[in-house]
């Protein structure tokens, strides 16, 4: 049995692909799986920063493909989880340093030894994106509840379908409940009805994500954070568990419990 390859992509930049990749990798590793993250954003690498592994890079993905090092030499082991590895992107090269078949070959070499391989895709629909989706078994499309991000997600889902790599799964990131309630933000339902793909999870806006990203400590390690819980739930859903969506309404606590008690009391 080999690993499954997940590619995290979005079309638009800045929606949280790298954050999602890092958090899902840490979440799956914390569930006891062997996980390798692959940064395919050659020239604009930052998965290493988000994972807090930046100053341990010696070799990168292009070094492996061009034969300057063995696969194992470029795999950085995370000290928090002994079965979590990162293969960083090259910073001094560009997307043309890799081809889709290089990515397929690299993932095939990794598959026997891993449970999950998570590929962080660059923004855009060009070479880098094509490289990232080439080895994928599962494609996760990350979007924000904003018109521009949803348009780009729609475009990218169209390309995934035409390359017969689908169906894509959707993650809605940075949903701001108070904006939605005021009617100033697209709701999750608006996004799903336009994109017409399976929803894998909704991650609420959480300022702690920025702090944790800067520190190189993925938010999923913080069990009090709603965003962290949401990423953990997504990882468990990928693993085949049936986890209900988080209650993001904020109306938790006494009133909700009372309401539930009253309804159940009437029965």
């Amino acid at each position: 049995m080999g690993a499954k390859v997940i590619t995290v992509t979005s079309g638009k930049g800045g929606v949280g692909k790298t954050t999602t990749t890092a958090n899902l990798a840490v979440a799956l590793a914390s569930l006891g799986y062997k996980v390798t993250c692959l940064d395919s954003d050659i020239g604009l690498r930052n998965l290493d920063v988000v994972l807090g592994l930046e100053n341990r890079i010696v070799y990168d993905i292009v070094d492996i493909v061009e034969g300057r090092c063995r696969l194992k030499q470029a795999m950085i082991r995370d000290k928090r989880f002994p079965e979590l590895y990162l293969i960083p992107a090259a910073q001094t090269r560009d997307k043309s340093a890799l081809s889709p078949s290089d990515m397929v070959r690299l993932c095939d070499d990794l598959r026997p030894e891993m449970d999950w391989i998570i590929v962080d895709s660059p923004a855009g629909i060009e070479r880098g994106f094509k490289n990232a989706i080439a080895p994928a078994d599962i494609i996760l499309v990350v979007t924000n509840p904003e018109v521009s991000a949803v348009r780009d997600a729609d475009r990218i889902i169209g390309i995934i379908e035409s390359e017969e790599k689908g169906p894509a799964h959707l993650i809605i990131n940075r949903l701001n409940i108070s904006l939605v309630k005021r009617g100033d933000m697209l709701t999750a339902d608006d996004v799903i009805s336009l994109l017409a793909v399976d929803l894998l999870g909704i991650v609420p806006e959480d300022e702690n994500v920025v702090i944790s990203t800067n520190k190189g400590q993925p938010i999923v390690l913080d069990s009090h954070s709603k965003a962290g819980q949401a990423f953990m739930n997504i990882a468990r859903r990928l693993n085949g568990e049936n986890v209900p969506l988080l209650d993001l309404d904020g109306r938790n606590g006494l009133f909700k419990m009372l309401g539930k008690l009253m309804r159940e009391g009437v029965k």
């Binding site: 780009d152 729609d154 475009r155 169209g158 390309i159 017409a196």
Partner: peptide, 8 residues
């Protein structure tokens, strides 16, 4: 019989 997406 499918969604016609952006770019199609």
């Amino acid at each position: 019989q499918r969604t016609i997406r952006s770019g199609n």
